[in-house]
């Protein structure tokens, strides 16, 4: 496998797969991350503090007081060059409810008009694809998913919204995402998802992680409100939307 090892100061480096992109890159990165985690769990790579997945690269942050930088870097570069048996299969699969109606879908009409489709066709195109989580970033728990249908690809809004409600499902360029927090944002908002995406009380604070797969399941406003109540009251666990454990 063709790789590049990039220096990110004296306590981090990035392994890049320059020829990969999209879902295939994300899965190759996930495979490397799993190998790195295995080595860390076996106490082989001392001082690894953080591992950050991007769509075609993995960044490893070290504790410079503990790690032998060159040793760890060279070992992980070797792992990256190892052939991976099968990266076509995905990891966990989540089926996330999303309401594409009314106030929950402020940009649906606009996206339909721009793409020359009906709102129903837009919903169908967005919810019929199983997406890969390319990376988590921008905000804690913010998952970048791809790739969306070519007919739905538009640049970000020229004037970003000051306030995008938590749970908003947006699209921009070839990606889609759910805002885990209320925040400013420039994506076109197609739906709202009632499932919480980040909670510091969870063992893994982010519901999703790089390399898992996600699809959206259209629901009505009534179903949205019921799910939101059940999730808030604890009657329903976010884990119930994990439909396939995958192969890790």
């Amino acid at each position: 496998m063709d790789i590049r090892v990039l220096t990110l100061g004296d306590s981090a480096f990035t392994i890049e797969f320059p020829t990969l992109k999209g879902a295939f890159g994300a899965r190759r990165v996930r495979a490397l991350r799993t190998r790195v985690q295995q080595e860390v769990d076996h106490g082989k790579l001392l001082g690894v503090l953080d591992v950050i997945s991007a769509s075609r690269s993995l960044t490893v942050c070290l504790d410079p007081q503990v790690s032998d930088y060159e040793l760890v870097r060279d070992r992980i570069a070797d792992l990256a060059r190892e052939p991976v048996n099968d990266v076509k299969d995905g990891g966990q699969l989540w089926s996330l409810p999303a309401c594409y109606q009314g106030d929950y879908a402020p940009d649906l009409e606009n996206v339909a008009q721009r793409s020359g489709l009906s709102p129903e066709e837009v919903i169908d195109l967005h919810s019929s694809v199983t997406y890969d989580v390319f990376l988590i970033g921008f905000l804690p728990g913010f998952a970048f998913l791809g790739e969306i249908d070519k007919r739905l690809r538009f640049p970000r809004r020229t004037s970003p919204r000051v306030r995008v409600p938590a749970g908003s499902v947006g699209i921009a360029n070839e990606q889609t995402a759910v805002y885990p927090w209320e925040s400013p944002g420039g994506w076109h908002l197609l739906a709202r998802c009632p499932v919480p995406f980040f909670n510091t009380a969870w063992e893994q604070p982010s519901l999703l992680s790089a390399g898992v797969r996600v699809r959206f399941d259209p629901i009505s406003v009534v179903e949205y409100e019921k799910l939101q109540n059940d999730l808030n009251s604890g009657a329903l666990s976010p884990q119930s939307f994990l439909v396939d454990q995958g192969r890790g």
Partner: peptide, 11 residues
């Protein structure tokens, strides 16, 4: 914070 950058949590 160490160990949470992979979930988008800054240091």
């Amino acid at each position: 914070r160490r160990g949470y950058a992979g979930f988008g949590v800054p240091r």
